[in-house]
Measured scan of single mutants.
Amino acid sequence: AVSDRLIGRKGVVMEAISPQNSGLVKVDGETWRATSGTVLDVGEEVSVKAIEGVKLVVEKLE
């Protein structure tokens, strides 16, 4: 699937994400809805860990 190529890629949070609410991330110039187990603020760099349906699962870049 086209989304599989995104796993491991870096992105930037465009709309804040929390465990309760999905947000938006931009990866390779495309905007995706994303979820995370932690709070991520706009502008934070993330990496794509998995894909669930049409949402990316991301975590903060260390």
Rank of each mutant, 00 (worst) to 15 (best):
A1D: 15
A1M: 10
A1F: 04
V2Y: 03
V2K: 05
S3H: 11
S3A: 10
S3G: 12
D4G: 06
R5V: 15
R5S: 15
R5F: 15
L6D: 02
I7C: 04
I7T: 04
I7H: 03
R9T: 06
R9H: 11
R9Q: 14
K10R: 10
K10Y: 08
K10T: 11
G11M: 02
G11N: 00
G11Q: 00
G11R: 00
G11C: 05
G11I: 01
V12F: 13
V12W: 11
V13M: 03
V13L: 03
V13Q: 00
V13N: 00
V13I: 06
M14I: 12
M14A: 09
M14R: 08
M14S: 08
E15S: 09
E15G: 09
A16G: 09
A16S: 09
I17R: 01
I17L: 05
I17M: 08
S18C: 08
S18P: 04
S18I: 12
S18E: 07
P19W: 05
Q20Y: 13
Q20W: 07
Q20T: 14
Q20H: 13
S22Y: 08
S22L: 10
G23P: 01
G23Y: 07
G23H: 01
L24H: 10
L24P: 01
V25Y: 00
V25D: 00
K26W: 11
K26I: 09
V27T: 03
V27C: 04
V27Q: 01
D28L: 07
D28C: 07
G29A: 09
G29S: 10
T31W: 11
T31H: 13
T31F: 14
W32G: 02
R33P: 15
R33I: 12
A34Q: 01
A34D: 01
T35V: 12
T35M: 09
S36C: 05
S36P: 02
S36T: 03
S36K: 01
S36R: 00
G37R: 12
G37M: 13
G37W: 14
G37I: 11
G37Y: 10
G37P: 14
T38V: 13
T38K: 10
V39Q: 11
V39Y: 13
V39W: 10
L40M: 06
L40K: 02
L40F: 10
L40S: 03
D41N: 11
G43M: 12
G43L: 08
G43N: 13
G43F: 09
E44T: 15
E44M: 10
E45I: 12
E45C: 06
E45F: 10
V46R: 00
V46E: 00
S47K: 14
S47V: 14
S47L: 13
V48S: 01
K49F: 05
K49W: 05
K49E: 05
K49Y: 06
K49S: 12
K49L: 12
A50D: 07
A50Y: 10
A50W: 07
A50N: 10
I51E: 02
I51C: 04
I51V: 11
E52K: 07
E52V: 13
E52G: 04
E52A: 08
E52C: 07
G53K: 05
G53S: 05
V54P: 11
K55L: 15
K55H: 14
K55I: 15
K55A: 15
K55T: 15
L56D: 01
L56R: 00
L56F: 03
V57N: 04
V57T: 05
V57D: 03
V57F: 12
V58F: 01
V58T: 02
E59Q: 10
E59R: 05
E59K: 06
K60L: 09
K60A: 06
K60V: 06
K60E: 04
K60Y: 05
L61H: 10
L61M: 11
L61K: 07
L61I: 11
L61Q: 08
